[in-house]
Design a protein around this nucleic acid. Structure first.
Lengths: 206, 206
DNA sequence: TTGATTATTGAATGATCGTTCTGTATCGGT
DNA sequence: ACCGATACAGAACGATCATTCAATAATCAA
C-alpha cells in the first residue's frame, strides 16, 4: 500500500502561510522594485520575522525568485492563457492577450503595469543575477508568443510575407510599452485603444 | 555700458567640470537606476568628492534632477529633433523618430534603452518625487508628439477618422516597449523591424 | 592686505541595509 | 519520556547608506 499523502517533515511545523507571505511580497516588489524593497519592508508587510523568511528562502534574492514564480503562477498564467487556447484563432488569441494586458495592467487592486517588466528594470551590478531572472522570463514569454504565431502561420492564418518572429516581437513590444503607460496612469480605455491600434492592419492571409 | 560676460561669483572657483561629472552620473543612473546607484558609486565614477557634489547639487535627488536635464539636453534633444523639423511630413517625422529610437536605444557606447523609461521604473515611497520627475518628462514628450500629430491632422495628413491622441500614445508606447527590448538585448535591426511594423499601422489620408 | 565668500578634502555622523546568532518552542520518531 | 530536527522571536552583526562637519584653500571686492 502506497502513502497517498506526503509525509510530514520532522521538526516544528511552519506557522506562516508561504503563499500568503509571497502574495504580500509580490505586491511590494511589484510596486517598488527589487532594490527599493528592503527586508524590513517585507517583514513589516508579511508579518513574518526576518529569520523565518531567511529560513524559508535563504536570502533576499531567493525570496525574489520565489516571488517571481508566485507572480507567474497567479498572474502571468491568466494573461497568457489565450495563447494556449486551441479554440481561438491566432488573431483572436493575440487580441485577447492584448486586451487582458490592458485590463490587468490597469487593475485597481494591484500595482500598475507588469511585475515582469518593472520590478528589476535597472539594478546594481551586484544584483545582475536578479535582472537576468526576469529577463529570462520575458524572453521565454516572447518565445511562447512567437511559437503560437508560427503555428498560426503554418495553418495559413498569416499573410505569406509575415515573419512570425518580427510580429511576435512587435506584439511583445507593445505590451511592454503598455506597462510603462499603465505605470504613468493610463486608463484601461487608453490601453485598449493602444491595443486596438496594434491589431489594426493585422497581416491576415488573403 | 553693460557687462557682456556673466560676472564671476565670489569665492573659490569650482575646480571640477559640472557637465563632465553629470555625463558620468548620467551613465551610472541610466545603467543602474536611481535607487541602485549610491553616492559612493557617483564619487568613484566622477572623481568628485562627496561634499563637492552636495555643495553643487544639494543632495542625491538634486543631482538626479540635474542628470535628467543633462540627459534631455544631450540625448532627448536629438531623439525628438524630427518632431520639430518643419521640412518633414508628419509620417516622415514619426518614422525618423522611431528609427532614431532604434539606433539610440541600441547604441553600443551607452547603456541600453532610454534613461527616461528605465532609470526610475520602480522606486521606494521615499523617492516618489524622483519617479514623478521622470514621469512628467515622459508625459511632456508624449504631449509634444501628440501636438505634432494634431498639426499633421489639421494639414490633412492623417485619415479623417484618426485620433491624434491615440496615435501618439500608440507610437509612444512602441518606443517605451523598444526600450525594454533594447535592455533585453535586441539589436538595432530587430528594433528597426519593430518600428517598421508600427509604421505599417500608419493611417494616411486617402 | 584684509575680510567675505565659496570650494575642497577627508573624516565622521546616525540610520538603515542584508544577514546571522542565541535561546526557546514544537513537531515526529522511538 | 526523550532525542533529533525544524521553526520561532528578538537582539545583534558588520557593511553600507546618504549626509554633514571641521579645517583649509582659492577667489573677489575693498
Amino acid at each position: 500500500m502506497t502513502e497517498t499523502k506526503a509525509r510530514r517533515r520532522a521538526g516544528r511545523p511552519r506557522v506562516f502561510d508561504t503563499d500568503a507571505a509571497l502574495d504580500k511580497a509580490v505586491r511590494l516588489f511589484w510596486q517598488r522594485g527589487y532594490e527599493a524593497t528592503s527586508m524590513a519592508d517585507l517583514v513589516a508587510e508579511t508579518g513574518v520575522a526576518a529569520a523565518s523568511l531567511y529560513a524559508a528562502f535563504d536570502n533576499k534574492a531567493g525570496l525574489f525568485a520565489a516571488v517571481i514564480e508566485r507572480y507567474a503562477a497567479t498572474f502571468s498564467v491568466h494573461l497568457y492563457a489565450p495563447i494556449n487556447d486551441p479554440a481561438l484563432s491566432t488573431y483572436e488569441a493575440v487580441k485577447s492577450l492584448l486586451e487582458r494586458a490592458a485590463s490587468s495592467f490597469s487593475e485597481p487592486g494591484t500595482p500598475a503595469g507588469c511585475f515582469m517588466y518593472s520590478a528589476a528594470a535597472a539594478v546594481s551590478p551586484a544584483s545582475a543575477a536578479i535582472e537576468c531572472l526576469l529577463r529570462d522570463k520575458r524572453i521565454a514569454a516572447e518565445a511562447l508568443l512567437i511559437e503560437r504565431l508560427q503555428r498560426g502561420a503554418a495553418q495559413g492564418e498569416l499573410a505569406a510575407n509575415t515573419d512570425p518572429a518580427v510580429l511576435g516581437k512587435f506584439i511583445n513590444t507593445v505590451m511592454e510599452g503598455m506597462s510603462v503607460q499603465a505605470r504613468d496612469g493610463a486608463t484601461i480605455n487608453e490601453l485598449l485603444s493602444i491595443a486596438k491600434m496594434a491589431l489594426d492592419r493585422w497581416p491576415a492571409a488573403i
